[in-house]
Design a protein around this nucleic acid. Structure first.
Length: 368
DNA sequence: GAGCCTTTGAAGCCG
DNA sequence: CGGCTTCAAAGGCTC
């Protein structure tokens, strides 16, 4: 959980601590300082002064959008934020934004009954605190009850169904899913989906999980339902914000939307992100409670493998950044300045400045 | 119609 | 243990 782990004692804002951090053992350090006459501190100061500006200028995010029309279309504010549609937070009762698509973590009624069982604090993580444990259930001494220990997690209050707002998408149709989407405990849960492949979620949402004609279903014995991975913080954020971004920029292509959402995600404050990390953690906890024997491995191989080369290229850059962040204990909110192999909380203007100041450093990423 | 694209985070696998 | 891979959502797009 790198974003939470950025750092003991780290600053309230990154700028102060942002430094030009290079790979000293890669021979880059000397070249950089000697060749330019600038010290690392000099550049860090210059960059720090630009960080805020670059963050404000969120239109920079458009550089990642490949299609020209996308750049035209997306002119929304950096993060218009929420509330744009407030719904009770199922975990703490507070208000939280939502969209027409609702995360699987959402409960139809107020406080999640599991919440009281969960050992973590309801507070968002505090700035500069130690990283939150990724998985409390793996920590020694923390009880991980079996599903029998948590009866009635999804049981409805007498008037429960009638109180479900229309946007609480997953719950009502949980009732019509049939036994195949029931947890052994009898608790319906949206993470259980039929092994129908690509559009299962859509079918799920449209209450068409069970085939209209039962021809296929009748012949084959029911396949084992697929239990999906719990959504991580970013996925929860995407689910919430997708509709809003689509409305803002009129884009529909998910790849472009996701790029925007990725930028918005980075533009979120720690507190805002913390909300999603907390939700994701509760989601994982709930998932573990409901499906104690489930493993992410269960779903391996269910998707076709992506094209090897492309994936490796993509992963290579990601991993470079990950390595660098891990190495220096930096937050994910830092960005990878690939050319000069430093990690900063930089945006395009800073990268441009970096290229301008240190042209000799900006060569292909192959050495990383 | 299957798979790709694109994002971040979590978890599994492997050396 | 570090690095890499896969999957999670989404919907337009390509082959």
């Amino acid at each position: 959980m790198p974003q939470l782990g950025s750092g003991g004692g780290d600053d309230d804002e990154f700028g102060a601590d942002d430094e030009m951090i290079s790979f000293k053992d890669e021979g880059e350090q000397d070249e950089k300082s000697q060749g330019s006459g600038f010290t690392e501190r000099d550049l860090a100061e210059v960059k720090s002064s630009l960080v805020n500006e670059s963050e404000i200028n969120q239109n920079q995010s458009l550089r990642l959008i490949s299609k020209p029309q996308d750049r035209e279309i997306y002119k929304g504010p950096a993060f218009s934020g929420y509330p744009f549609l407030m719904l009770p937070d199922p975990y703490n009762g507070s208000m939280s934004p939502s969209s027409n698509k609702v995360s699987v973590v959402q409960q139809p009624h107020g406080m999640h009954s599991l919440t009281s069982l969960l050992p973590y604090s309801s507070e968002p993580f505090s700035t500069g605190s130690a990283p939150l444990p990724a998985d409390l259930s793996t920590k020694p001494g923390i009880h991980r009850p079996s599903s029998q220990d948590i009866p009635g997690f999804y049981s409805l209050p007498p008037s429960g169904a009638g109180q479900i707002p229309p946007s609480m998408g997953w719950f009502p149709h949980s009732f019509i899913l049939g036994a195949s989407s029931m947890h052994p405990t009898g608790i319906p849960h949206p993470a259980i989906v039929p092994p129908t492949g690509k559009h299962e979620e859509e079918q799920y949402d449209k209450n068409t999980y069970m085939k209209p004609d039962s021809e296929g279903r009748r012949e084959k014995e029911p396949k084992k339902p697929v239990i999906k991975k719990p959504l991580n913080a970013f996925m929860l954020y995407m689910k919430e914000m997708r509709a809003k971004v689509i409305a803002e920029c009129t884009l529909k292509e998910s790849a472009a939307i996701n790029q925007i959402l990725g930028r918005k995600w980075h533009a979120l404050s720690r507190e805002e992100q913390a909300k999603y990390y907390e939700q994701a953690r509760k989601e994982r906890q709930l998932h573990m409670q409901l499906y104690p024997s489930w493993s992410a491995r269960d779903n391996y191989g269910k998707k076709k493998k992506r094209k090897r080369e492309k994936q490796q290229d993509s992963n290579s850059e990601r991993n470079s950044a990950m390595r660098c962040r891990a190495r220096f204990g930096l937050s994910q909110q830092t960005e990878w300045c690939a050319p000069c192999r430093c990690v900063l909380r930089v945006e395009l203007p800073v990268l441009r400045l970096c290229r301008f100041l240190f042209p000799t450093l900006h060569r292909p990423l192959t050495a990383t």
